[in-house]
């Protein structure tokens, strides 16, 4: 018994102290995953804020964006042009979703809209397989100008290896997250978005067009999905399994709150750091690979004590 307690509560911290270079390496890995989780979660938050819908299809949008890019480059389209075309595809997707899915279902219960996004999810899987085929593909990092080497640092008496690709991924994620946060907090369109989230009728009465806001939000979510798809696809490969990774955004959202942009950022980082540290220091105790369920475990604990998340709006129903 004493041995177990030692292994759980003392030994991991002893390890952290005795090999700070390893800890640094683990923290870096956690940071990179965290920024990417934050990015995915942001896609969900945007749509949830403006329409109160949990967009089940966000994960497949990530895959769809990445697949389109790989497919276009494979056809010989120059990388820059391919990216622009992918942004166009995401805009077309946002427009069609608003026109064909959201508009006919306006004023329906959130659960019905949620079901519609599940339908959208299957539609996009089918369309993706039809157009691009089901086999995994490799993201052409060279054409996209993404670095592939690594930097080795001698610090704290050890070696920390930092993949240049990870640095690029973190940089892209941070830029997008910061840009979107400013866009949605400080501009007219951001204010309109928050207005729509608060009260549909009042928003209409000041002349905010719901349809326009929905298109902007779905387009932003599409851009976020595309960026995530490119960076994540470059780190592993591009396949439909990526959409499962995107569902890691769920614990991030539970932690951060479904309606909060800062929440998505902080939640993403907590999950990123948490899962890597747990995997490295506590994973061996139970035979490893706790990375895949640890975020959900963390989310469960959060649900117990703070169901609205760290930054979510407190749900108070007056009766």
């Amino acid at each position: 018994m004493g041995g177990l307690l030692y292994n759980v509560f003392i030994d991991p911290f002893m390890q952290m102290g005795s090999a700070p270079d390893l800890l640094l390496q683990v923290l870096w890995e956690g940071f990179v995953s965290g920024t990417l989780y934050a990015l995915i979660a942001l896609g969900f938050v945007l749509i949830f804020k403006a329409s109160g819908v949990f967009n089940f299809a966000q994960g497949i949008m990530v895959v769809f964006g990445a697949l389109s890019l790989v497919g276009l480059i494979a056809l010989g389209v120059p990388a820059i042009l391919a990216i622009v075309m992918c942004i166009g595809i995401m805009a077309a997707l946002a427009y069609s979703v608003e026109k064909l899915v959201l508009r006919p279902l306006v004023n329906q219960e959130p659960i019905i809209l949620f079901m519609a996004t599940i339908g959208l999810n299957f539609f996009l899987i089918g369309l993706g397989e039809l157009v691009f085929g089901g086999e995994p593909k490799v993201m052409p990092t060279e054409q996209l100008g993404l670095p592939t080497g690594s930097w080795d640092f001698d610090v704290l008496g050890g070696l920390v290896i930092i993949q240049q690709l990870d640095v690029a991924a973190a940089a892209v994620a941070c830029t997008l997250v910061a840009g979107l946060a400013i866009f949605f907090n400080k501009t007219r369109i951001g204010r309109a978005l928050r207005a729509v989230a608060d009260d549909h009728q009042a928003a209409l009465s000041v002349g905010i067009s719901l349809n326009q806001i929905w298109r902007i939000v779905w387009f932003s979510a599409g851009i976020v999905a595309l960026a995530t798809g490119i960076m994540w696809g470059a780190r592993s490969d591009v396949s439909f399994a990526l959409s499962i990774v995107a569902l890691k955004a769920l614990p991030v959202l539970i932690l951060g709150g479904f309606t909060s942009i800062p929440g998505a950022i902080v939640g993403g980082l907590i999950i990123g750091f948490g899962e890597k540290i747990a995997e490295f220091y506590w994973g061996p105790l139970v035979g490893g690979s706790i990375e895949s369920w640890f975020p959900y475990f963390l989310a469960l604990i959060f649900l117990l004590f703070r169901p609205q998340g760290l930054f979510g709006e407190k749900i108070i129903d007056r009766v």
Binding site: R194, A195, D199, A202, S205, E313
Partner: peptide
């Protein structure tokens, strides 16, 4: 509006 319809979070 009859029952104030403001954007409460703002």
């Amino acid at each position: 509006f009859q029952n104030v319809a403001l954007f409460r979070g703002m």
